[in-house]
Amino acid sequence: MYVVVIGGGRLGYYLLKALLNDGHEVLLIEKNSALCDGINKEMGSVCLHGDGCETAVLTEAGTSRADLLIAVTGDDEDNLVACQVAKYKFNVPRTIARVRNPKNESVFKKLGVDSTVNSTNIILEHIEHEVPSHAMTHLLTLHGKDLEIIDIRIPDNALTVGKQIHELVLPSQTIISLIIRKDSKPVLPRPETTVQAGDQFMIVADASKETEIRDILTAAA
C-alpha cells in the first residue's frame, strides 16, 4: 500500500515509522526543511519538503497512485484542504485527517474526509505525567478495517517488564510496530527485544481487543 502522510511532527513521525515497519511504501510531506532533512538522514529518502496542500507538491509526491493520504499537521484547515485536494484532484480512495478542534469533526466528514482523528487524546499523551493512570492513548482509527493505532505506556510495576517480545501472549493480528524509549532513539521491536519500564508501545490492533491488550501489557506484578 502506498501512503502519503502530511505533517512531520511527532504524530507524523511515529506513523511514518510504524507504516514503514509494516512494509508499506510511505512518503511524508513536511514544510519545515530542517525537520525533513533530519527524517531523511535517519530513514532514507522518505520525506518531501513542501506544502501538502499544494497541488504541485502532491503531484511530485505521486499522490495519484496513493491508496491512502493521512493529514496530521497541527492546523485543521491545512488537514482539511490536503484531504480534499487528494480526494477530488488525485482520486485518492481514502483520506484521514487529524482534527485539533472536536467541533470541526462533523464539518470534515460532510466535506468528504473519510476518517478523522480527534487530537484530544494526543494532548493527553503530553500530560500523562499528571495522569499516571492514563496508560493508553488512541492515535488513529482505520474505519472499515476495524483497526486502531494505539500508544500504550508500560508502567514501572508491570508484569511484562523484563520479558522479551516473543514471550508476550497478545491477541492474534496484534502488531507492535515501534517502541519509544526515554532518552533513546525509537526501537524497531524484534522477538528478542526486552520490555523496559516506561516503554511506549505503538500498536496496530483490532479495535475490539484494545482493553485486553492494555490489560496484558500493563497488569501489575
Rank of each mutant, 00 (worst) to 15 (best):
N157Y: 04
H138D: 11
P171V: 09
P189G: 02
I149A: 10
P171K: 14
T141K: 08
K182L: 12
S177F: 05
L168Q: 02
K103E: 13
I122Q: 15
P171Q: 09
E105A: 07
M136L: 05
T120P: 03
E125K: 13
V107F: 03
P171Y: 10
L147G: 06
K182W: 12
V195D: 01
D183V: 10
S115Y: 04
P186W: 01
I175R: 13
K110D: 07
H138K: 08
S119L: 04
S177K: 15
G112T: 15
P186A: 03
I122W: 08
V187S: 12
D146Q: 13
T120V: 06
V195E: 10
N118D: 09
R190P: 00
L142H: 01
V131N: 02
I122H: 06
P171F: 09
V107C: 10
P132W: 11
T116P: 04
N121D: 14
V161N: 01
D151V: 04
H129Y: 09
R190D: 05
V161A: 01
I180G: 00
L188W: 01
I175T: 07
N157Q: 13
H143E: 09
V117P: 11
D146A: 03
T174C: 08
K109F: 01
V161Y: 06
V169I: 15
T137P: 03
V107W: 00
T116D: 01
I149F: 08
H126M: 12
P189D: 04
S106H: 13
K110C: 12
L111W: 00
